[in-house]
């Protein structure tokens, strides 16, 4: 279970998070929605320790993230970055097996390559992609390789940062289905940030809406259309008029 308690974060005079409280139960898929620049990525990076919150606590299975031993803590996570964040200098299979080639999870090279190819298959890529470099792949393929890398070490918790941004609708559907299948199959706790409502409905068990630095609404995905929350209604229907200013 991941718990964010009263998390604040500012960058200079700009207050991005103003007291985020959120709980993601173990094995559930939580999707955080909200407009651009509302702090979704900041919240996610705070959990991973990539950004240090100014105030508040983040607990993972009751353990304070700020005090956890970094390597063991991070070994529990997998992350799919918005742009893939694949390492240009490494081949596809070396990207996927990155964690298996070094550190505490190190395996023999042949075994790591085998696992990488199996994970590539899992995300719908053939083994002949393994020896290509990221620059030789399309955007959709890069996302899949990023997904394969995120699941390579079979993490308990997986984060997805805008998983469908920049993809065509069909490829977005493929990635959404893959994420859902993998999360269910692995029994992982998932936290996704997106503003793609098709993704939300495909991936989420629960949804949280972040606006003005706080969680405005949270509930099961089934209640998304009947929440009665004006912020959420405006967002999911993509209306310019409403409590959320169109120009921020």
């Amino acid at each position: 279970m991941i718990t964010l308690e009263n998390v604040h974060k500012s960058f200079g005079p700009k207050q991005v998070l103003r007291g985020v409280d959120l709980t993601i139960p173990k094995g559930e898929s939580m999707v955080i929605i909200g407009g651009s620049g509302t702090g979704k990525s900041v919240a996610l990076k705070c959990v991973l320790g990539l950004i240090t919150p100014d105030q508040g606590r983040i607990l993972v299975d009751g353990q304070d993230a700020a005090r956890a031993e970094r390597d063991a803590f991070l070994a529990r996570f997998g992350m799919l970055f918005q742009g893939g964040a694949l390492f240009d200098s490494l081949s596809v299979w070396q990207n996927v097996a990155f964690r298996l080639l070094r550190g505490s999870l190190k395996r023999p090279k042949a075994e790591a390559r085998e696992i990488a190819i199996e994970k590539l298959r899992r995300v719908g890529l053939t083994p002949d992609v393994a020896d290509l470099f990221p620059s030789e792949l399309s955007g959709g393929m890069q996302k899949r390789v990023g997904l394969a890398r995120a699941i390579a070490a079979e993490p308990e918790i997986i984060f997805f940062d805008e998983p469908t941004t920049g993809l065509d609708p069909i490829m977005s559907g493929v990635i959404n289905d893959l994420i859902r299948e993998i999360v269910v199959e692995m029994g992982a706790t998932a936290m996704t940030i997106t503003h793609d409502m098709t993704s939300v409905r495909a991936i989420a068990d629960k949804v949280a809406m972040l606006h003005d630095g706080v969680i405005k609404w949270t509930g099961p995905v089934a209640q998304l259309d009947s929440s009665g929350d004006p912020h959420l209604d405006q967002f999911i229907h993509g209306r310019a008029e409403g409590p959320i200013a169109a120009v921020r």
Binding site: L50, F81, A85
Partner: peptide, 17 residues
């Protein structure tokens, strides 16, 4: 710098490196 801009440095951290 390119690695930083494309979040590859963040990816390194999340991969315990």
């Amino acid at each position: 710098a390119t690695m930083k801009v494309t979040e590859q440095i963040d990816a390194l951290v999340t991969l315990s490196t």
